[in-house]
Measured scan of single mutants.
Amino acid sequence: AEKTGIVNVSSSLNAREGASTSSKVIGSLSGNTKVTIVGEEGAFYKIEYKGSHGYVAKEYIKDIKDE
């Protein structure tokens, strides 16, 4: 099942092309942005936001229960 997560940073969080800190940054998400978690790979979540996919470090995403 898809989960919703909240970007848990004070400034912004980089979204990357792949599940690695050396992957190209494809965008950034500001704190408290809601994202859909579609998968996980190592220390990263694969997320969907406004129709695009990217990878973000798990430690900066807070899971919330689907309402």
Score class of each variant (00 low, 15 high):
Glu41Val: 10
Ala1Phe: 14
Lys24Phe: 05
Ser22His: 11
Ser22Met: 10
Gly39Asp: 06
Ser52Gln: 12
Ser12Asn: 09
Ile47Trp: 00
His53Val: 13
Gly42Pro: 00
Arg16Cys: 08
Val9Ser: 12
Ser28Gln: 14
Arg16Met: 14
His53Ser: 06
Ser28Cys: 14
Glu48Gly: 02
Thr33Asn: 04
Asn32Cys: 15
Thr36Phe: 12
Ser22Lys: 11
Glu48Arg: 13
Thr21His: 14
Tyr60Cys: 14
Gly5Glu: 02
Gly51Phe: 05
Gly27Met: 15
Ser10His: 12
Val38Met: 07
Tyr55Asn: 00
Asp63Arg: 11
Val38Trp: 05
Asp66Phe: 14
Tyr45Gln: 01
Thr33Asp: 08
Val7Asp: 01
Ala43Phe: 07
Lys58Glu: 00
Gly42Phe: 03
Arg16Gly: 02
Asn32Ile: 06
Ser10Tyr: 10
Lys3Gln: 07
His53Ile: 14
Val25Pro: 05
Lys24Ala: 09
Ser28Thr: 14
Tyr49Met: 06
Asn8Thr: 11
Glu41Thr: 07
Val7Tyr: 03
Glu40Arg: 03
Gly18Ile: 06
Gly27Leu: 12
Ser11Trp: 09
Ser12Ala: 09
Thr36Arg: 14
Val35Arg: 00
Asn14Tyr: 14
Ser23Leu: 04
Asp66Tyr: 14
Ser11Ala: 09
Lys65Gly: 08
Ile64Thr: 07
Glu40Tyr: 04
Tyr55Leu: 02
Lys34His: 08
Ala15Met: 15
Tyr55Arg: 00
Asp66Leu: 13
Lys65Thr: 13
Lys50Met: 13
Glu67Ala: 13
Ser23Asn: 04
Gly51Pro: 00
Lys46Tyr: 08
Ala15Lys: 02
Lys24His: 06
Thr36Gln: 08
Ser10Lys: 13
Ala57Phe: 11
Ser23Phe: 07
Leu13Cys: 15
Gly18Glu: 12
Ser10Asn: 09
Glu40Lys: 03
Ser52Glu: 07
Val38Gly: 00
Thr33Ser: 10
Tyr45Asn: 01
Lys46His: 04
Gly31Leu: 09
Ser52Ala: 12
Ala57Pro: 14
Val7Ala: 04
Asn8Gly: 08
Glu2Phe: 15
Gly51Leu: 04
Ile61Met: 03
Gly39Ser: 06
Glu41Tyr: 09
Asp63Leu: 15
Tyr55Ala: 00
Glu40Asp: 06
Lys34Ala: 06
Lys34Asp: 02
Ser30Val: 12
Thr33Ile: 06
Gly54Ala: 15
Ala15Trp: 15
Ser23Arg: 04
Ser12Phe: 14
Glu17Ser: 09
Lys50Ser: 07
Lys3Ser: 05
Tyr49Ala: 00
Ile64Asn: 05
Ala1Val: 13
Tyr55Ile: 01
Gly54Trp: 13
Tyr49Thr: 00
Ala19Tyr: 04
Ile64Glu: 06
Gly31Tyr: 13
Glu41Gly: 02
Ala19Glu: 03
Glu17His: 06
Leu13Pro: 06
Ile6Ser: 04
Glu40Ala: 05
Gly54Glu: 01
Tyr45Asp: 01
Lys62Val: 13
Ile37Cys: 05
Ser12Lys: 12
Arg16Asp: 01
Ile37Lys: 00
Ile61Arg: 03
Arg16Ile: 04
Gly54Cys: 12
